[in-house]
Design a protein around this nucleic acid. Structure first.
Length: 443
RNA sequence: CGGGGCGUGGCGCAGUCUGGUAGCGCACCUGUUUUGGGUACAGGGGGUCGUGAGUUCGAAUCUCGCCGCCCCGACCA
């Protein structure tokens, strides 16, 4: 993409409503624009990152054997009355009525709909196990939205639902989700720690929350520092292997790690003192096993091998896709701007032309652009007629992990400069080597 | 919903207390200049001061209502 043809409305000054780094930087980098309290338009740059995150979530869910679909945002109140949650959910649910005066709602979650789909079509235990998920916009009418996309009213969320014949099968589904979530977060450059959590309005007593450590997090967390040494890495995983999934769950959840909701001072005190940590965390996902809580009232049953009708065991699992942008920025920024992890960056590499209009510099940039594109990468070429300082400031702000700087001075010596946004370290390289280096980083 | 604050060109703000017909910086347009970390100079465009009613000869400024937004708290992913 050439910056002169893109839409990137960066701000030099910070809009006054933004309090925390991620909100401030998303506004300044031209990623989002507030439409009303807690509701945002996603401008091209923000939309690009949102789609990257969404893509990672899709890939990892499909890899785990879960099946993508899409349910509507607007739902009928009928199903919610049936489950008993229409009254329980409270003011947080946005209630609307259609032209006929029928009660409708903008879905805050999808247990009712998915269960209805399931009970309409699934009759036999032979159709199990089944895990369906979708990535769709939700609305929760927060009393006080804040922190930009971290705590919006409208938000994009992946939510999935597993249906199993037995509790054992459902717990394996639970484990699969834990593993697939760990992989997803790691690909986004985040360390998200599974912590024992509270069921909340979704219900269920078997549940973990995934938290990213950050000073601006909404939750207070307590953990054994040994959990932050764990990483998934690129280990091979067979999602049908019950023992392997169980082993990974144990590896990642056996050490003490809890939010303040479930924190237990006595257990915490058993951790060696030098490993005890308390910090703040941003919740980026949660998984639940809730047994037959929804399948019984809604009549989601299958016939078992014995011919008896039995309610299915269910679980649900969510990843806050839009809020992840905020979490990633909270965990990856400095005073100049965002620093995208390679896995989610909107463009893999920036090209800064220090002297737009100089025939040699222009040609060198065009060559780099073509070479990077040819390697399957998407560079952002700053071809505006701006001063070097302005171009650098914009690049630093939008946070592309790598930048190639091209100027007449370097070209005389046959080199361009490859700079890491994260470390600030620059290397002078021939254009060919610089391209090869960037391609290798993303290989 | 309780407490606090804000609403003035696209963004950040001053002016409001003490009423007299709107100003600064950035951004934008034109020209010159400059060119390796947000150049400098000159010229220029753009605002019914959130909104409605009232007080007044006169309201951004005073009074009342309404709307919107932000912060703290309770709530929440």
């Amino acid at each position: 993409m050439r910056l002169s043809r893109y839409f990137l409305p960066v701000l030099k000054e910070t809009p006054s409503e933004a309090q925390i780094a991620s909100h401030r930087l998303m506004l300044r980098a031209g990623m989002i624009q507030q439409a009303s309290a807690g509701i945002y338009s996603w401008l091209p740059l923000g939309y690009k990152v949102l789609r990257r995150i969404e893509q990672i979530v899709h890939e990892e869910q499909i890899r785990a054997g879960h099946i993508p679909m899409l349910m509507p945002t607007v739902q009928s109140a009928e199903l919610w009355r049936e489950s008993g949650r229409y009254d329980d959910y409270g003011e947080e649910m946005l209630r609307i009525s259609d032209r006929h005066g029928r009660d409708m709602l903008y879905g805050p979650t999808n247990e009712e709909l998915i269960t209805d789909i399931f009970r309409s079509h699934v009759r036999s235990y032979r159709d199990l196990p089944l895990t369906l998920y979708h990535i769709q916009w939700k609305f929760r009418d927060e009393i006080r939205p804040r922190f930009g996309v971290m705590r919006g009213r409208e938000f994009l969320m992946k939510d999935g639902y597993n249906f199993d014949l037995t509790k054992e099968d459902a717990l394996h589904a639970y484990n699969r989700h834990l593993v697939s979530y760990l992989r997803s977060y790691e690909r986004m450059g985040l360390q998200a720690i599974p912590m024992r959590a509270d069921g909340g309005p979704i219900g269920g007593d078997y549940t973990h929350e995934f938290l990213v450590l950050a000073d601006t997090g909404e939750s207070e967390v307590f953990y054994d520092s040994a959990v932050t040494d764990l990483s998934f890495g690129d280990r091979a995983i067979d999602y049908d292997d019950v023992e392997q999934c169980q082993g990974i769950l144990e590896e990642f959840t056996s050490r003490y790690a809890r939010t303040d909701e479930t924190h237990d001072e006595t257990l915490f005190a058993d951790i060696p003192e030098d490993r005890r940590r308390s910090a703040r965390g941003i919740e980026v996902g949660q998984i639940f096993y809730f047994g037959t809580k929804y399948s019984e009232p809604l009549g989601a049953t299958v016939q078992g091998p014995d011919g008896q009708s039995t309610p299915v065991h269910m679980g649900s699992h969510g990843i806050g896709v839009s809020r992840l942008l905020g979490a990633i920025i909270e965990a990856n920024h400095d005073d100049k701007g965002i620093i995208w992890p390679e896995g989610v960056t909107p463009f893999q590499c920036g090209i800064v032309n220090l002297k737009q209009g100089d025939a040699q510099a222009d040609a060198a940039c065009e060559d780099l652009y073509a070479a990077l594109t040819g390697r399957g990468l998407e560079p952002l070429y700053d071809d505006r007629d701006e001063r070097a300082g302005a171009k650098f400031a914009s690049m630093d702000l939008i946070g592309l992990p790598w930048r190639i700087t091209v100027g007449p001075r370097g070209l005389k010596a046959g080199v361009v400069e490859l700079t890491s946004r994260r470390t600030g370290v620059s290397e002078e390289l021939s254009p060919e080597v610089a391209v090869a280096r960037v391609a290798e980083i993303y290989a």
